[in-house]
C-alpha cells in the first residue's frame, strides 16, 4: 500500500479525488439553487441533491482518475516492476482500489462532516456516509475492472461510460428485472425511499435496501475476482 499511497500523492490523484468530491457537493447545492430555484436549502435537500449528483454524474466525474491510476502502469510499462516486488494481478488491483477507496472515503467523510456541521444536524450523517461510500466503491470496482482489461485509458473510460449508460437504460426499461445491475440509479426503488427517509428526519432505510447494496457490491467483487483470475497473463502482456 505504501507505494500506491506515495504514487497517489505524487500523481495528484488524491487531490483530484478531493476536488471531485467537493465538486459533487457544490453541484448538489447549485442544482438546488440554480435549477430547482430553491430559496431555502435544507440539510436533507442538500444531501439528497449531492447524492443525486453522485449517482447520476459520478461515473463521468470519477472515471478519468480511476482509469488513470490503473492504466498509467500499463502505459509506463511498470508491470514487470510490480512482478519484481512480488505483486500478482490480484494484489496489484486490490491495493490500487484500496487506496482509491480509502482516499475517496476520507474526502466523503470530510465533505459530509462539513455539511452536517454547517446545518448543525447529524441525523443522517452515517446513512449518507454509507451511501456515498457505496456509490464511489461501485465506480471504483466497475471502472477499475474495465481498466485492468484495457491498456488504453480512453478505451477504459469509453467502455465504462457505455456500460453505465446501458445499465441506466435497462433499469429504466424494467426496474424489477434489471434493478440489481444499478441499484443507485434514480429510476430504481432506492432513490425515492431515500428521499422519503431524508424528509422524515430520523428514519432509516429498510434493511432490505442495505442488503441489496451489500449484495450488489459483493457481486461486483465476485465478477471482478473472476475477471482477474483470467487476466494473469494478459496483465503481464499488456504491461510490456
Amino acid at each position: 500500500m505504501k507505494l500506491e499511497i506515495k504514487k497517489s500523492f505524487s500523481n495528484k490523484v488524491v487531490w483530484i479525488l478531493a476536488a471531485m468530491v467537493m465538486f459533487m457537493f457544490l453541484m448538489g447545492y447549485f442544482l438546488l439553487v440554480g435549477i430547482d430555484k430553491v430559496n431555502h436549502v435544507t440539510y436533507n435537500m442538500f444531501f439528497f441533491s449531492s447524492y443525486t449528483v453522485a449517482t447520476q454524474f459520478g461515473l463521468m466525474l470519477f472515471s478519468f482518475v480511476i482509469a488513470f491510476f490503473i492504466n498509467r502502469e500499463y502505459s509506463n510499462k511498470n508491470i514487470l516492476f510490480y512482478k519484481l516486488i512480488g505483486e500478482s494481478v490480484y494484489s496489484f488491483f486490490y491495493k490500487k482500489i484500496g487506496v482509491l477507496f480509502l482516499e475517496s472515503f476520507v474526502c466523503i467523510t470530510i465533505g459530509s462532516l462539513l455539511l452536517s456541521i454547517m446545518f448543525h444536524n447529524f441525523s443522517h450523517f452515517f446513512l449518507m456516509l454509507f451511501l456515498f461510500s457505496a456509490v464511489i466503491l461501485q465506480y471504483i470496482l466497475i471502472i477499475g475492472t474495465i481498466s485492468i482489461l484495457c491498456s488504453n485509458i480512453l478505451m477504459s473510460i469509453g467502455i465504462s461510460i457505455v456500460y453505465w449508460l446501458t445499465s441506466v437504460i435497462l433499469v429504466a426499461v424494467d426496474p424489477k428485472l434489471f434493478g440489481f445491475i444499478a441499484p443507485f440509479e434514480a429510476s430504481n426503488s432506492l432513490s425515492p425511499r431515500l428521499d422519503h427517509v431524508l424528509q422524515s428526519q430520523h428514519g432509516s432505510l429498510p434493511s432490505s435496501n442495505y442488503a441489496t447494496i451489500l449484495l450488489y457490491l459483493l457481486a461486483l467483487l465476485a465478477v471482478n475476482f473472476i475477471i482477474l483470475r483470467f487476466s494473469k497473463t494478459r496483465w503481464v502482456k499488456m504491461g510490456l
Binding site: 504514487k7 514487470l80 510490456l240
Partner: peptide, 10 residues
C-alpha cells in the same frame, strides 16, 4: 528493456 520500467513517480 524499454518494456520494463521502474515507477517514475517516486
Amino acid at each position: 528493456s524499454s518494456a520494463s520500467n521502474i515507477p517514475h513517480d517516486v
